[in-house]
Amino acid sequence: MKIVLNGEVHDVSARTLDAVLVEIGFDGLLATAVNGDFVPQLERKTRVLKDHDRVEVLAPMQGG
């Protein structure tokens, strides 16, 4: 399945959001959104992704 994660195309074998994050190698304090909608941490294990889904993985960053 091909998804767009943080603007880059990834070909992943995992199906749930949680598993995709592990497959790509993310760790730590993160927030996720799929197709523009927030997906809470507790829902990542059950959130099944589809081909061409747009996933955003955000982390704390400097800000003003």
Partner: peptide, 16 residues
């Protein structure tokens, strides 16, 4: 603080 796309190196974690 802000939120931005996380890199593979986990830059956001050290900042936090």
């Amino acid at each position: 603080v802000s939120l931005r796309r996380e890199g593979r190196q986990g830059q956001g974690q050290s900042f936090w």
